[in-house]
Amino acid sequence: MTSALLPTYARAPIAFERGEGAWLVARGGERYLDFGAGIAVNALGHAHPHLVAALTEQAGKLWHTSNLFEIPDGERLGQRLVDATFADVVFFTNSGAEANEAAIKMARKYHAAEGHPERYRIITFEGAFHGRTLATIAAGGQQKYIEGFGPKVDGFDQVPTGDFEALEAAIGPETAALMIEPIQGEGGVRVIPHADLRRLRALCDARGLLLIMDEVQTGVGRTGRLFAHEWSGIAPDIMSAAKGIGGGFPLGVCLATRAAARGMTAGTHGTTFGGNPLAMAVGNAVLDVVLADGFLDHVQQVGLVLKQKLAGLKDRHPQVFSEIRGEGLMLGLKLGVLNTDFAAAARSEHLLVIPAGDNVVRLLPPLIVTEADVAAAVERLEATASALATSQRGAAE
């Protein structure tokens, strides 16, 4: 039977009907250990009771009013994010791409408000992924996402990550901002060194540029801090977040200093659904858990245990695993076999992992994952590696 859905996804032939914690249950009853978390979205796992209660309660009261009226839970969530971060103001969206669009517009509008509308270009970094809108695929600069959707949106210049000579050369009189992910997720879990982030901050300060941090995948506890840039001891001017902030409910946010947001006055930007009562109820519930004492310590501890176990796995299967990358519970395995083959073989072991660029698979378990879950995942990774190694030897013979 031909599907009515647009064929833009290469879907695995599995349908899930329920989940609990770090586990998913397929229609046939098979249990899968979820180390993809909906691509870093289900930060608190599946069917977390606090999130379920918050959403259910709000669903019985009010779903949508629009931003023509005050939304008290949005005010509360915004203030909590301000209190926990560098930011003075926030703008709620439905997704990471929308949050990045808001960040791009904000950076351009800042310079226009400063009397320099010619400063509209944003420098980004090779391997980046900032979303799927026309502007954000141009910002990411990856040809595989841009192909066929031309002409490319103007205003973005890419430079190699870590190449400060190329970066300095790219800065010109039209440059408004730098935009970077502290860890490239889609790009292959490539960690930007903390020293490089500090150097970018200093460069922006010296050249009158805004620093935009894309924390759509790295934020809301994923690396063991509320936001990954905190490890480097610097703060951006503008930051996007999404994925984990809604715990599975569509929610994104653009955060900024009041100075960086000075051009965003009434009528300059908007959204129909962003900041709706359902999303705000869930977002507040997520923060209740993530900001609770000991939660981020747990992420750091379990992430360290996982990384240590992966190191042993790499030593036992050097033909399959060539490198371990990442921080906290955002880890990547660079492979000696095709990453899509590895992900498919892992599914056969009832483990879900996510392919990424640079022939990497991502391990992005829910942040509530236990050490027992980690041990079970490593057993499945071991079985996957053994099966692929056996297959390779068989093919060679």
Rank of each mutant, 00 (worst) to 15 (best):
E165V: 15
H229W: 13
Q142T: 01
A228D: 13
G219F: 03
P193S: 08
Q142N: 09
F149V: 01
E215T: 05
P173S: 10
L203K: 07
D205E: 14
D237N: 14
A135V: 00
M179Y: 06
P182L: 07
S232V: 02
Q143S: 12
L203D: 02
A169T: 12
I212E: 06
G150D: 15
A138D: 05
A169M: 10
R207F: 05
P151S: 12
R207I: 01
V189D: 07
G187C: 10
K152Q: 15
P236Q: 06
E165A: 15
L209D: 11
D196R: 00
G140C: 04
R199Y: 04
A169W: 05
G155H: 12
R190C: 03
C204F: 12
H194C: 07
L210A: 02
E215K: 02
A235D: 13
Q184D: 05
A139T: 04
D196G: 00
D163S: 09
G148K: 10
L203S: 05
E230N: 01
I212D: 01
D154F: 09
G188H: 04
R222I: 09
E168S: 11
Q143R: 12
G150T: 12
A177D: 03
I238D: 05
F149P: 00
V153G: 03
L203I: 05
P173E: 14
V220H: 06
H229V: 09
D154Y: 06
A202P: 06
K144G: 03
T223A: 02
L200R: 09
A202L: 12
L209H: 08
G155A: 13
D214C: 06
G224H: 06
R222C: 06
L226Y: 08
R190V: 15
R201C: 04
L167K: 09
L210S: 00
P236F: 05
Q158P: 12
G188F: 10
F164K: 11
D205T: 07
G224L: 09
G185T: 06
I146A: 07
E186T: 08
T161M: 15
E186R: 12
D163M: 08
D237W: 03
F164L: 11
G188Q: 07
Q158G: 11
L211Q: 04
G155W: 11
T136V: 06
G172N: 15
T161C: 10
A138F: 04
L167T: 07
T218H: 10
K152Y: 05
K144E: 15
R198E: 11
D237A: 04
F164P: 08
L178V: 05
R198L: 02
E230Q: 15
Q142V: 10
T218N: 14
Q158E: 15
F149K: 15
A135C: 06
E168N: 13
D154W: 04
I212G: 01
E147C: 00
I212F: 09
T161W: 10
E181P: 00
F149W: 13
P236R: 03
E215Q: 13
V153A: 15
R199G: 00
F227I: 01
L226W: 08
L134Y: 08
A170F: 05
V189S: 03
F227Q: 03
L200T: 01
L209Y: 03
G150V: 11
L209T: 11
L167G: 05
V191F: 12
A139L: 14
L178A: 07
L211I: 04
D237R: 02
E230W: 03
H194W: 13
T161I: 10
A138Q: 04
K144H: 11
